[in-house]
Design a protein around this nucleic acid. Structure first.
Lengths: 339, 339
DNA sequence: CTGAAAGCGCTTACAG
DNA sequence: CTGAAAGCGCTTACAG
């Protein structure tokens, strides 16, 4: 390209000041209608490109919101992101995505980048082991944070997530009603609030049902389809074999169902399986997967809304909002233990 | 926070100039070792945050690379992105992700944002119907573009993708060897190079085998799991029923397999199914999915490499690099038409 | 090895 | 309604 077109290029060409051009391009009523139109036309003709870093340096607003989660490929986040995007688009905020893969140093370097770019806000699903200080560092440097999916003790900011303990309780209660007494739980880790709360919900429900928990029922770790599949052998090695399995997530359940089928067991016929999240695939899987709907659209929508409030200058609120989950009964939990 | 810490804050505190501080923080050998260390320590103590927009305004380098694809949730892109990330990380380039959902206006607004931010480069899987002019607009404004997965005629830039016609040919040849003569193709659209090339490969392979193509065999459209599932009814309505189906992607195939199972047909036993991409799930699916490995890691690695070359000042090359795909035979294509 | 000064391209009071 | 001027926080020649 020949020569960089800037405000002054247009100003010179039209014989006005750069202030007028700047105002006109932003539709200020301070500039006369005719002048405004002339300027906009010239900008188009010149192929003018707004220099956002110059503007942002001056105004210290960037129009950028960062969104950082551990796994963008997980459909659970996909639905959250969709909702977030809708809200932010409406406010003409650009949103920048990052995948931290639960790697704290990756998350830090992304937050750092946002800080350096003068981003206006951050929606974060915190990586495993994120200390509250990391969140406060951002907040202290004028980067408002809203948490999704997971929560960080003492962060002092707002977080939105499903009521995981309650939700997992729904799943286990349902199995107990169908007379299951040997219920294993596969996946998740104590390093996240999600993992802890879902496990707590599982244990509490067993207790309510008067079932004595047995340690071998709790298979920690799996958090995606492949590791759910790999957990099959561990599940099948439990003596006596559990009649039902609740999973940390739909992906884990779907992977496990592949594994069980491969081992000759029919989920929903020979063994009950329940997932968590109610991702789109759950309804079409074979068998269709019973699961707990986690309100991801609501999480996304409300998290974005809360962040926008902060952008408008409202103060941080130290509060975790729990969205109420809902049990979806499908084929994979049809099997009931005969009385 | 109290007061913004900037270079001059540190400079004043230590009684040196901002130039020295700037140089020291970037490890310039121009600054004496001791001074450098003192400055770095002070920066840490002050909690200094580098203002990237100021620097970028001055240098017109931003350290930002944009990556924009139509569906980040598709594992196919997941693997490409992983490879891209590895390469870019090594060059300390920040990468910004965008999901254009095949919406041209979304893609445009993202490219615009990159231009405004002075991004250094763009890796793009172009949205349906992207005109070459869109790519040239970016290039003309100093934003080097590298294409992945899809290609745009006349864009004048480098693109990396699998050899789709050849790959789909491998799948069909394999089915023909197993004596299938009624082979349908589900998914994809003529609006992308991928869709066109895979269809061309399918048609060419039928021709090679002396099979007369029948229009009802070609079911266009599906490009994800759910629409693959939804296509089941259309597939089963074909008279006589095809004995084998090649799919536009693994996701389409996986959805279709769910649908076929639901209809009481066993993929790999009653009907052969082949996917495309060889995503991680293909190997653990039940039945495991025969597919065409699309070299996504290589696409990602080489696309990132090509972009980095451009960042180093090398000129654009008008070239599409085709990565050679490979057939992976698994259970879903075990079924062969009896001779 | 270090400092003083100009300039990147905007926006925002302030005048007129 | 419009213009002249200062300043956002860096980096880069240029001097010394």
């Amino acid at each position: 390209m020949a020569q960089k077109v800037k405000l002054s290029t247009i100003a010179d060409a039209l014989g006005v000041s750069t202030a007028t051009v700047s105002l006109a391009l932003r539709d200020s009523p301070l500039v006369a209608e005719v002048t405004r139109e002339r300027i906009k036309e010239a900008a188009r003709d010149f192929g003018y490109i707004y220099n956002r870093r110059a503007a942002s340096l001056r105004t210290s607003k960037s129009g950028i919101v960062g969104v950082c989660v551990h796994d963008i490929m997980n459909p659970f986040f996909g639905e959250i992101l969709m909702a977030v995007e809708e809200e932010l688009d409406r406010q003409r905020q650009t949103f920048i995505l990052c995948n931290h893969h639960d790697d704290l140093s990756k998350q830090r370097s992304f937050v750092d980048t946002l800080l350096q770019l003068g981003a206006d806000g951050l929606i974060l699903s915190p990586a495993l082991g994120t200390p509250a200080a990391d969140i406060r560092l951002a907040e202290d440097n004028d980067l408002p944070v809203t948490l999704i999916a997971r929560t960080v003790q003492g962060s002092g900011v707002r977080g939105f997530r499903g009521d995981d303990a309650y939700g997992m309780g729904l799943a286990v209660d349902h199995l107990v009603e169908r007379r299951h007494r040997q219920i294993a739980m596969v996946g998740g880790t104590g390093m996240t609030s999600t993992g802890r709360d879902r496990e707590a919900g599982y244990l509490a429900a067993l207790k309510r049902a008067g079932i004595a928990f047995r340690p071998e029922w709790r298979i920690e770790g799996p958090r995606n389809r492949h590791s759910g599949f790999d957990a099959t052998a561990t599940v099948l090695a439990i003596e006596p074999r559990p009649t039902a399995i609740v999973c940390f997530s739909d992906l884990v359940a779907l992977g496990l169902m592949y594994g069980l089928s491969r081992a000759g067991l029919r989920p929903g016929v020979d063994i009950a399986v329940i997932g968590y999240d109610d991702i789109d695939e759950a309804a079409i899987a074979m068998p269709s997967l019973s699961t707990v709907s986690n309100g991801q659209r609501e999480v996304g929508r409300r998290a974005a809304g809360a962040l926008l409030d902060r952008l408008r200058g409202e103060p941080a609120i130290d509060e975790t909002v729990l969205i109420r989950p809902e049990l979806k009964i499908r084929q994979s939990s049809e099997y009931a233990w005969p009385s």
